[in-house]
């Protein structure tokens, strides 16, 4: 089996394992973050492939989908769930900013290595800092969405 498939299996296992660190009482928050992130990644993922910015030579459902199913459907949404449920809501702005930095960097660095040494992802007209910036923006959007969603939802349940 080629190394790319081994990496994919490893990533799937690791991501599913990540689900177990989500606290039981925050399942709903994790679900909303996961699903909202899926909608964003689906669209952005399709756009970057359509305009030839990134390609994924080795991928799941390769016949019918040129975007990365693994990353967009599962990996990034799950990491976003983790990001949201452990968000340091009561800390200072600087601490929150550091939290964003840590997550974006932790996702960008492995991607650079995967780009360099494997066929899982290929930057065509793309750079690592675009990855970093889009991660930052989409994390922020998800956070805002969750705040908006849960602000009124409990009030409406009365």
């Amino acid at each position: 089996m080629i190394v790319e498939w081994k990496i994919l299996i490893f990533v799937w296992t690791l991501t599913v394992a990540l689900l177990f660190i989500i606290p039981k009482d925050k399942k709903r928050l994790a679900l909303v973050a996961f699903l909202f992130k899926q909608v964003i990644t689906l669209l952005i993922g399709l756009v970057v492939v359509e305009f030839n910015l990134i390609s994924y030579p080795v991928r799941l459902f390769s016949e019918v989908n040129r975007a990365s199913f693994t990353y967009e459907f599962l990996v990034y949404p799950v990491i976003c769930s983790v990001f949201i449920v452990f968000y340091p809501n009561y800390r200072s702005y600087l601490y929150k900013l550091g939290y964003y930095f840590a997550f974006c960097t932790a996702l960008t660095v492995p991607e650079i290595f995967l780009e360099k040494y494997t066929d899982l992802i290929n930057y065509i007209h793309w750079s690592w800092y675009w990855t970093w910036i889009t991660l930052f923006i989409t994390f922020m959007l998800s956070r805002q969405f969750c705040v908006w969603f849960f602000r009124d939802i409990s009030k409406n349940m009365e």
């Binding site: 009482d25 968000y87 809501n89 969750c146 969603f149 849960f150 602000r151 409990s154 349940m157």
Partner: peptide
């Protein structure tokens, strides 16, 4: 089914409220 589970009890939303508000 998932939707009904989500809104089963409003007490369960307390933790979510704490982290987002």
């Amino acid at each position: 089914i998932i939707y009904q589970w989500f809104f089963r009890s409003k007490l369960l939303l307390e933790a979510e409220k704490r982290i987002t508000q």
